[in-house]
Design a protein around this nucleic acid. Structure first.
Lengths: 151, 151
DNA sequence: GACATATAGTTAGTTATGCAACTAATATAA
DNA sequence: TTATATTAGTTGCATAACTAACTATATGTC
């Protein structure tokens, strides 16, 4: 189908650009205002560990859409802040399992509230239907670009 | 209105995350494959200069949603690659006007084609209506977050 | 004209990103 | 069981992001 008529170049800024940057900056600002000294990237890792603790670095990378080098360093920094510990897997000593510390656990509630609040600011007057379409489009864009890699 | 019911945290990944990252990486990969040694961030600056040459650094920052420090270094790198030159404004010597070089000019055609091609891959089987909704939602998200700063 | 303020851009410091090359551990194959 | 390949993670190198502090030029006020 792909015979959509787009103004050249313009498209890219549809997907990338202003909105994502603005939301990220706002969320970071809200973290700081609440006295939380974590980046949104670090938060994205913690977020997945709160859902399921003890994931491997590779699995964390997959879930947060990062390569393994980026994941390594993000976890380095989280470990420096004592929010997370690496534990070598008994079964396969190549694998590091990443676990939340007691310092990280109480952050879940606060950061979820800040994320919710931020998204409410961002999505003011935007309907559930519109949000669903955006989510759906994004999923299909992702699939379009990643399935092709497997061929 | 803002009484949307969202699963906590999940929202953020709607706006940010996988799709934007995947598109950016694909575009970068397509640049590299074509032998173009520029980053997509550099390209976003060139893109605005092709539309209007001789913008100030601040104006370029506004149009590409970057702060001035980031803009400074991006232009440092573009200047190093001789794609761009800084010219102090006659009227106001605080201002640097940024101009494309003869090396940069022929890149317009090729990069536009690569960007188009990339977006066609990304937006395969996504309708014009859906894309319009995404654009519109993003514009409103941006407005929601930036207008508030002016109060 | 002199002093305070605002503006454009730069620099320093920290975090994050991606790619490519590397190490160590595990799995496969001869 | 030894040699080879694969996998998980780390490290080096380069670019990019933001904040805060800085320099230099312009503007505004008395």
């Amino acid at each position: 189908m792909s015979n959509n008529q787009f103004k050249r170049g313009e498209l890219y800024s549809v997907i990338n650009g202003m909105a994502t940057t603005a939301v990220a900056r706002r969320l970071q600002k809200n973290f700081r205002k609440a006295g939380l000294d974590i980046t949104i990237e670090q938060w994205s890792v913690l977020y997945h560990l709160w859902k399921e603790d003890g994931l491997s670095q590779l699995e964390l990378g997959n879930r947060t859409f990062r390569d393994k080098a980026s994941t390594t360093r993000l976890i380095d920094n989280l470990e420096k802040q004592e929010l997370v510990v690496r534990v070598a897997s008994k079964d396969d000593r190549r694998i590091n399992l990443v676990y939340l510390t007691d310092i990280a656990k109480p952050l879940q509630q606060i950061t979820y509230e800040l994320a919710n609040q931020t998204m409410n600011e961002a999505l003011l007057n935007i309907s559930k239907e519109e949000i669903d379409i955006v989510k759906n489009v994004f999923q299909r864009v992702y699939d379009n670009l990643t399935n092709k890699d497997l061929l």
